[in-house]
């Protein structure tokens, strides 16, 4: 009788991680950055109809990098979870922390138990009532979470972007204009060509809005902001 083919757990996990990383490395990057009035999301996304940034709940936004069908199903699951929870309890009880935990559990389980890990990285942000109350979460394919307060990035060039931002971003919370310029420049730094404004998907969680804080910033408005 032939022996079953043995692969050590270390080797298996390493192979899976490499596979997932390779998939994510192909994806374009997304940055989330706290600004004076909320949180800004900027994605390098030339498509005008397929979005990478989306609203999850009143003050929570989601964005995914990597394989589209995978982060899209995660996005939907997040919205369903948030809406059920908000209906069962109250709207204030829906938090990014619990969603991030849910995503982490799920990606972790898929990473260790399924045939193929998800080739995605997620970014979840919740705008707080004051700037020091913002929460940003970055969740990786294996379920690991990193939480930040000021900025974070996901996608293929995320490490390079983070290094650049750590150097460039001052201690003070930037204005919307400065934040947008900085995000735009960092895309330029990590790739060969600067994506023009048309190639960016921009959205904000604006704490001054009543109720649902999420808002897409269309091209015309982006031009006005940069003027």
């Amino acid at each position: 009788m032939p022996l079953p083919y043995y692969v050590s757990p270390e080797q298996m996990m390493q192979d899976r991680a490499e596979y997932a990383k390779k998939g994510i490395a192909k994806g374009r990057s997304i940055i989330a950055m706290a600004y004076g009035d909320g949180v800004l999301f900027v994605a390098d996304n030339p498509s005008v109809s397929l979005f990478k940034i989306s609203e999850i709940y009143d003050n929570i936004a989601f964005s995914g990098a990597g394989k589209y069908n995978e982060f899209e199903s995660l996005r939907k699951a997040g919205i369903q979870h948030a809406d059920v929870k908000g209906m069962m309890y109250s709207r204030e009880d829906v938090t990014a922390r619990s969603l991030a935990n849910g995503y982490s559990q799920m990606l972790g389980t898929i990473f260790s138990q399924e045939m193929k890990p998800y080739e995605v990285e997620l970014l979840l942000a919740q705008v707080g009532e004051t700037p020091d109350r913002n929460e940003l979460y970055r969740i990786s394919f294996d379920g690991s979470i990193v939480d930040e307060q000021r900025f974070t990035a996901i996608g293929g060039r995320s490490e390079a972007i983070l290094t650049f931002l750590r150097k460039e971003l001052s201690e003070q919370c930037p204005s919307l204009k400065d934040a947008l310029i900085l995000c735009h420049t960092s895309f330029e730094r990590v790739s060969d060509s600067k994506p023009n404004l048309e190639g960016l998907e921009i959205a904000v969680l604006d704490r001054n809005r009543k109720g649902r804080k999420f808002r897409r910033v269309l091209l015309q408005e982006a031009r006005q902001i940069l003027e």
Partner: peptide, 30 residues
């Protein structure tokens, strides 16, 4: 609330955008 797993349920092909439909399938008690 303990983290429920509506996550698993959403991985089906029927991608209804209706919350009412979602509840009636996955959480009828609500």
């Amino acid at each position: 609330m303990p983290f429920e797993t509506p996550f698993q349920a959403s991985f089906s092909l029927d991608s209804h955008s209706s919350f009412y439909h979602y509840l009636s399938v996955h959480k009828p008690e609500l």
